[in-house]
Structures are given as C-alpha cells and as structure tokens.
Design a protein around this nucleic acid. Structure first.
Ligand code: MN
Ligand code: MN
Ligand code: MN
Ligand code: MN
Lengths: 239, 239
DNA sequence: TAATATGATTAGGCTATACTAATCAGATTA
DNA sequence: TAATCTGATTAGTATAGCCTAATCATATTA
C-alpha cells in the first residue's frame, strides 16, 4: 500500500508500548536510555533495539542521539505514562478484588496492560476509588498524564536514628516481594533506623509502633525507598 | 533458526486463537467451515485464510479438505473451547463486577481473552461462583473442555400456543442487544407464542407472568433461542 | 456436455519484530 | 598518540500475518 495513504496515527503495538515503558524508566532522571540497557530490560538482542529505535524516532515518540541513547518526546512520554497508569491500576485491582498477592501481580498486569480498553481501566479506577498508589507503593499517573515525583531515599542510605515511612518497593521479583511481606515490610510501615554495619553491611531497623527489629541486607535495603518522617517529641504535634 | 530446534509446542498467537474460535462456531453442527465464511467472520481476505489454514493443519489443530473446508481436530477443539470459556467468563465478570452492559461487553472480552492467564480466568470464575452461562445465555465450557449442547428452537420457528423460556440471544451486535434488553427479552424470561403473521411476518408473544405483549420481527425472532416449557395446568405439578 | 459463475488457492509483496555475524565509533588505557 | 575494549549500528535473514492479482476446481446452468 502507498505509504502516503497509510494511517497517520496507527495504534501502538504491544512491543512499542513495552519499549516506551522501559525507556521511560531508564531515562526518568533526565538522562538517556542506552541501547544495551533497553535490550537487557526487554530481554531482546541489542540490534533489535537499534531497529526499533529507528522506527520510534521516525514516528516521533523518541529522540535518538546515535551512540548516546534515547529520550522520550512529549508524545512518547504521554504514551508511556498511559501504559504505566494501566499497569498500576491493574495491579491494584487484581490484588484488591481478585486475591492476587503483590508478588504475582506484575506478570499478569504486564500482559493485560496491552489488552484493556480505556473504559475498562477507568471503571477499575473508579471501583478502586481513584487510588494514588499501586501495591508496591508506586504512584499511579492520572488519566491526564501527571505523576507524583516523590523525594525518597533508599533505606540503605538513610542515616542511623532517622524515623522513616516505607513508601515504595523497587522490585517486581516475586521471591523478594514475598520475603519482604513476611517481614512486614510493605508500603506505609513506619520504622526507625537502629544501626548499620560497615563495609556495605546490613541495616537494622525497629518497626513502629511494635518495636520489632529487622536486619535488612544491603541488596534489599537498596530497594526500600523511604520518606523521612519528623520524629515524635515535645511540641511535634504543634507542627 | 533450525526448524528441528524450534519449540515443538509454542503458545498460540492471538490470530490463531481467533481462527480456532470461528472455526469452532462455523463447524459446530458437524460440518466443514468454509474459507470464505472464516474470512467474513474475521474480516480478513480469503487468501489470508488459505495461508493460515495451511499452518494450522501443519500444526495439527485442524483438518483441511481442499475446496471443502476445515474441521477442528481434538486438539484444536480443546484450544477453541478454552478460548470460549475465557471469553464467556470475562463477559460475565465485566457485567457483574465492573458495570458493563451486555451490548458492550463482547468487544472488550474479544481482546482480553488473549491476555488473561489461566489463573486469572479461574479466579474470576470462582468469584462468580462457577457460573454456567454468560450474559447472553451461552453455556460456559468447563475447564476440562465440556460444553452443554442444548436443544433450542428460534422463536421465529416456534409454534403458536407454546410456552417457552428464552435461553440464548444469538448476536453480539450492541444495537440489537440494547433493544432486546429494553423489551425485557433477556435469557431466563418466560413467554407464550400468541400469533405469527404469514409470509415471514412478525411473531407476537406474551411475557409470563406479566402478560405484556411484544411484536418481534423475523430477524430478531431468529436470534431468540428458546426452550419449550411444559404448560401449567391441572396435574402439571404432579409430573 | 460445454460454458459459466463461485469460491478456493497460489504467486508475489509488504510490515513488524526478532535474530546472528560483521563492522564501526567513542572511551579508556598503554 | 596508538592500541584496545565496549557498546552501538548495519547487513542480511527469518517468521507471522496480512494484502492484491492471477489462476484453478467445483458446482450450476444452458
Ligand atoms: Mn507489557
Ligand atoms: Mn507495581
Ligand atoms: Mn479475540
Ligand atoms: Mn456472550
């Protein structure tokens, strides 16, 4: 068929949707997403990425600087955030209404995100009461494409003595998620940093208010993104 | 890659799943599904069907008699019934739990059926209480691949005077479905056939127990599949 | 039986997406 | 600066699906 007659705005394919999502995650801090990182995250060979990058930049979804990497255009970012909204609403719906646990829900959402209609996503969102966070604590973009940018610190880097709220868990690995849930380490819990061993050693924390202690190795402590909470004390209520 | 090393049982693609479903529907009464009928139902050109038929019969999912048509093998039938189960459970879940109406639900299920996992389907089924029929009255195959074969007659062919239960509505067209719902003609309603005009004229029915009358044109009357119900009367309770 | 109409198939192309092998560019190190 | 390493890109190939145009087989009709 004549290229001039082809649909100017064809719907995005499954593959394209997944590429945009990983490019969003890899270039989130303002940098470039590298070909090899995209390839690793999608479990695809680097030349496949080079090929897709060419098509996506021709379509105007990304900007490509050869040998440096890619960034999303405004249009690409909108499309990526739409997919992330879908994914996170699906994850929450599946856990809240269909008995999924937070370790198993990611894989299912990864497929469904490409098949649900806008209508279905919005029906789920309203059934859920227009939630702000998914089961892993990640913020859900609005339908208009806005997303909360929280300033969080990994538990691994938090100073001893601080009081923290665990906000996001930065993995989708189900073994790690199951272990963390067993330990009571889910978004929303409060804790204080008791001590940290040197040479990349574990961090010991005390859960609030139970006071139960947990020793968290560095690998996991880097996945636990926390927000600093003002310590209770005389006059704290006045703030 | 070497053909001998390729995965012997790759997962079915979306397209293949849809082909198997329509072949099931077209060859249900034991006959052959014709290329052109498959093409029409999938909105695809006949040569595309010839191509797919070749691959499906090489894979052992269908049997092809050139210039006659195709039939499902046992393996193909299993796969088709699995998709039909998914489709119908999805339709029912969407109507019961997410506020869809029976006219809009088909299109959504048509996409989702390819993306849901077995686990999700079974979770939905158990949330629904392992239902036997979808919103249109169509029987839901069991997970083991059994399906109820009811002996139904279209309202258009039912003799005047009979008492009937409307069991299935044989269309997915949303305008027709919305109209039928307005008229109170949904699966489960009881009615008696009051009269029928000659020369393919409309059928007049009386709803039971309200007695409300409806005049149903032949096109719609052919879509309303009914089961004969013994008429109430002296001694009827004894049977 | 011969001509025709209908429907199915084959021939030949196109796009999206992946792959491997070969080459190239930029950064690092001797 | 020159050699080397790393990662990115190009070249060439494959498969699943789809398309149109041309051809072929079967059933119907004259
Ligand atoms: Mn995905
Ligand atoms: Mn998540
Ligand atoms: Mn489908
Ligand atoms: Mn249905």
């Amino acid at each position: 068929m004549n290229a001039l007659l082809r649909d100017a705005n064809p719907p995005l394919t499954r593959s394209v949707e997944d590429y945009l999502k990983v490019i969003y995650h890899l270039s989130n801090q303002g940098g470039f997403a590298a070909t090899s990182d995209i390839a690793a995250m999608l479990e695809v060979a680097p030349p496949s990425v080079s090929g897709m990058v060419k098509r996506l930049s021709e379509t105007g979804l990304i900007e490509h600087v050869p040998y440096r990497g890619v960034q999303l255009t405004a249009q690409g970012r909108r499309a990526a955030l739409k997919m992330i909204r879908r994914h996170r609403i699906l994850e929450l719906y599946l856990t809240q209404h269909l008995g999924y646990d937070w370790g198993g829900v990611h894989a299912e959402a990864e497929q469904l995100e490409h098949a649900v209609s806008d209508e279905l996503v919005e029906r789920m969102a309203s059934t859920l009461g227009h939630p702000l966070y998914d089961p892993h604590g990640d913020p859900i973009p609005t339908a208009a494409g806005e997303i909360e940018e929280a300033e969080l610190v990994p538990l691994a880097d938090a100073a001893v003595g601080l009081k923290l709220e665990l906000r996001q868990v930065g993995t989708q690995d189900s073994a790690r998620l199951h272990y963390l849930a067993e330990q009571g380490l889910t978004p929303g819990v409060l804790l204080t940093v008791s001590e940290r061993q040197p040479f990349n050693g574990p961090t010991t924390i005390a859960l609030v208010p139970s006071g139960d202690r947990r020793v968290v190795g560095r690998e996991l402590a880097q996945l636990l993104w926390c927000r600093e909470v003002p310590v209770d004390g005389y006059g704290a209520a006045a703030r």
